[in-house]
Write a protein that binds this DNA or RNA. Structure first.
Length: 582
RNA sequence: GCGCCAGUAGCUCAGUUGGAUAGAGCAUGUGACUUCUAAUCACAGGGCCGGGGGUUCGAAUCCCUCCUGGCGCGCCA
């Protein structure tokens, strides 16, 4: 709709240029926006105000000229001048109703596929496999997944990359402990059931026992040298750790699996080549024994340049090196046209350097987009990073347990007559929805406060409310035993709330493309919440099954159906499942 | 010290990249269940958009400055 108005306005601009009201070849940056207030119509543009200066003309006067040049038929019923020079557009109800019919008739709810599909690589989740997944991995995993789904839905080719931490010195001590356990005849997989514990005791022995530390260091060397036995032990460890992750992904409904795992170790052999190529490009400088890339854009205090260290004094490589290798792989092997990193915002300086160096080194094509989609920290009630009651890092598995338990208890309270299996299923879906919605509905880049009480309260802007809204629509169809696939008749938009609902329904596509462009699922949450509240109001004020006429009943059923389908599809893009009853 | 980010209602957060009277949810107060799920809806109160300057038709948004908080600053990731 916006694009339609935009096209019309572009024609007007040409026209005005021909009339010499404004200079030729002008490409003004005007806006077409949805209005906040219905008295201002459905859409508004500031074009007249933007053009008033180059035209040397009062904005209201210019607005009148623009209005005179706009066509008077089709989607737009009325155009009006308002305020300092806004032009307000009022949509035609019949046109709106047609759009609703169109959306209902299409599998994709009226959301077009993008004209130019891109090959998009998305780096998200990326936990450290030495430990268990904790609350710090939540945002990357959930937000990245939602954006991946949205891009895919819009027709892009999405390649998920789980850049797991599966390499480095810490694995030495883990392998040493495995070896020790095995020698003692203990079952390793049992001990690894609690990875966090395993890590802790390995670290403890590493700190306390000289012999153990020696062995650990030796194992790192062996591992890097490609020792067969050592590699086997390492793979065994990774396998167990990855299956821990997979359990979390499955419980959370995150679309990651083993095929998406492409960890740090995958770039190991490539690292010397990266150094060599940086050298060939004339970017490498040796400083205090370390090999660095200095770029003019990155300066510290006193204007002294800041390095990106790519090789340590001792010859070891760093995450900058691995990230460069990964970037080049994504460009050359995966043929990425756009690369998104869902990584903690605190690493933004690292990514700025990384992207700059990669461009300078020719690892990236000129027109490849790379973006660091940084996210803020999950905070506790005390305003500090979220911890468990005992002060430890909150494991994701325990967080999920807790959410499911709490949601289940609340559901049970509301439905004393429900069976235990039913309650468990609803508690599970609602618990997961609570966690995910609470996270996704906040702006990605800022920190947010984690609160079970807030997210699991089934009132207001929460996951459970969204699920509840969906079940209310679903129950209408169940109650009336109506085949949703065979709804006939016109869509009538007589009541204000019906019009408002329809207006929101046809905005779905626009919201999705914003989410895809900016990597901001909270916009989709806000949209779905508005749709749900608008529906609730409609549901209260407009009888559907008991509508006064059959025509009205059919019309309202169609509004219900489209609401349900958008809610379900929208939540699915957020990675949130729905329930038919709760 | 330098740099990045934030400061919006009692609390948790939005604010469409400069637009019209700054919005939601929670909490508070009032009203609505013999009628499609009241996990809901309707209405009300609540604001120096951290302070101060500037830019312009127009600023929570852009620039400068100060205050407060968080984070990052060479061989961890």
């Amino acid at each position: 709709m916006k694009t339609y108005v935009r096209e019309q306005l572009s024609k007007v601009i040409e026209n005005l240029a021909q009339q010499r009201v404004i200079p030729a070849g002008l490409e003004p940056r005007f806006k077409v926006e949805h209005t906040k207030d219905t008295s201002h119509g459905d859409l508004a543009t500031n074009l007249a105000m933007v053009l008033s200066k180059p035209a040397g003309c009062n904005p209201r006067l210019l607005a009148e000229k623009i209005i005179a040049l706009l066509p008077r038929q089709g989607a737009i019923k009325k155009v009006a001048l308002a305020g300092p020079g806004f032009i307000n557009f009022f949509l035609d109800e019949n046109w709106l109703a047609q759009q609703v019919k169109k959306a209902l008739a299409s599998e994709r709810l009226g959301v077009p596929l993008v004209a130019k599909p891109q090959q998009v690589v998305i780096d998200y989740s990326s936990p450290n496999l030495a430990k268990e997944m904790h609350v710090g991995h939540l945002r990357s995993t959930i937000i990245g997944d939602a954006v991946a789904r949205t891009l895919e839905f819009l027709g892009h080719q999405v390649i998920r990359q789980n850049h797991v931490g599966d390499w480095g010195t810490q694995f030495g001590m883990l392998l040493a402990l495995m070896e020790q356990d095995r020698a003692a005849g203990r079952e390793i997989s049992m001990n690894l059931a609690d990875l966090e514990n395993f890590y802790r005791s390995a670290k403890q022995q590493f700190d306390e026992s000289f012999a153990f530390a020696q062995r650990a260091r030796q194992l790192v060397v062996d591992l890097q040298a490609g020792d067969i036995g050592c590699l086997q032990l390492w793979r065994e460890f990774l396998d167990i750790s990855l299956s821990h992750c997979q359990k979390i992904y499955d419980r959370l409904g995150v679309g990651l699996n083993r095929t998406h795992v492409h960890g740090e170790s995958a770039y190991n052999d490539d690292l010397p080549r990266i150094i060599a190529e940086l050298d060939d490009a004339g970017l490498l400088t040796e400083d205090q024994g370390a090999r660095c890339v200095f770029l003019d854009e990155f300066k510290g205090q006193d204007g002294k340049p800041l390095p990106m260290i790519v090789q340590k004094q001792d010859g070891g490589y760093l995450y900058a090196t691995t990230d460069l290798a990964a970037l080049r792989y994504r460009q050359n092997q995966l043929k990425a046209e756009r690369i998104l990193y869902f990584v903690d915002v605190r690493q933004s300086h690292h990514f700025k350097q990384l992207f700059a160096v990669a461009r300078r080194a020719g690892f990236l094509h000129a027109n490849t987009q790379v973006e660091h989609m940084g996210f803020g920290t999950v905070m506790g009630d005390d305003g500090k990073p979220f911890k468990t009651r005992s002060g430890g890092v909150a494991k994701l598995s325990e967080l999920i347990d807790e959410a499911e338990k709490r949601a289940g208890a609340l559901v049970a309270e509301k439905n004393p007559q429900m069976t235990a299996t039913e309650l468990a299923e609803i508690g599970r879906v609602a618990g997961i929805a609570s966690i995910k919605y609470a996270d996704l509905s906040k702006n990605r880049s800022s920190d947010y406060t984690f609160s079970f009480d807030q997210m699991i309260s089934f009132e207001g802007d929460t996951g459970p409310y969204m699920l509840y809204a969906y079940t209310r629509v679903a129950s209408i169809f169940r109650k009336a035993d109506i085949d949703a696939n065979h709804l006939e008749g016109e869509v009538l938009l007589q009541e204000d709330i019906e019009r408002e609902l329809a207006n929101l329904q046809i905005k779905f596509a626009e919201v999705l493309s914003q989410v895809a462009d900016r990597g901001t699922p909270h916009l989709l949450c806000a949209y779905l919440f508005e749709l749900a509240t608008t529906f609730s109001s409609f549901y209260k004020n407009c009888p559907v099954l008991n509508a006064t006429t059959a025509e009205l009943r059919n019309s309202r059923l169609q509004l219900c159906l489209l609401t349900a389908r958008i809610l379900k599809q929208g939540l699915a893009l957020l990675g949130i499942g729905t329930l038919e009853r709760m």
